[in-house]
Amino acid sequence: MRAWLLRAEEVLRGELWTTRPGALAPLVALAVFCATAYGAMMGTFGGLTGERAFQVLGSALKVPLLLVVTALLSLPSFFVVNTLVGLRDDFREVLRALAASQAGLAIVLLSLAPVTLLWYASSGDYRQAILFNGLIFATASGGAQVVLQRAYARLIARDRKHRGLLRLWLGLYVFVGTEMAWVLRPFIGNPDQPVELFRADSLGNAYVEVGRMIWEQVAR
């Protein structure tokens, strides 16, 4: 336990081992563990008893799933583009940088979990809970950015092309992640509705839905 806490701290500080060979597995493990823990707490909004326990379980599975599957879907094309621009030799280090940023995201999330629980204890408003979690995720993404930029600084110093690729990664990840988050809803679970692992209308498209909402506002 203490060793893992130490590791988590080192990820945030950007210690050297996180960029060395063999760092990938512990980084991924950290990311998955912290994301699972935050997910479980995220799902406690509607309570813990009875069938609400399923929401806790569902959220605990969904948050790490969101991080891992999004990364897995974006990696093949990122790999090929890295190869094409001639940065294949750095790819292992790139992979560790990406894993470190995911771990950073999950660690910051978990560190904010008590605040989320306090929020849940103070307000029973479902919409506010969603917005608050949005804020928490945005904060955690900021933390992940810090970790990622630091890990990439070394790579960029070696070859400036990494800067463009970092932007490409962020673009890809956000593009896929947004849809992934949309598909995996609900993360919190509306207490007024029965527990459902996935929304009946989950097979929608985040971009089309949001675009339609904007379009309806503009065209009105």
Binding site: L72, S74, S77, L172, M180, S202, N205, Y207, V208
Partner: peptide, 26 residues
């Protein structure tokens, strides 16, 4: 071959959106 390699590497993302989305135009 280079084109197709890039295309195939983007395949997982396309498949994900294809399976998850109902919007044909998207």
């Amino acid at each position: 071959a280079v084109m197709v390699a890039v295309l195939a590497s983007l395949g997982p993302i396309v498949a994900f959106f294809s399976v998850m989305t109902t919007s044909y135009r998207f």
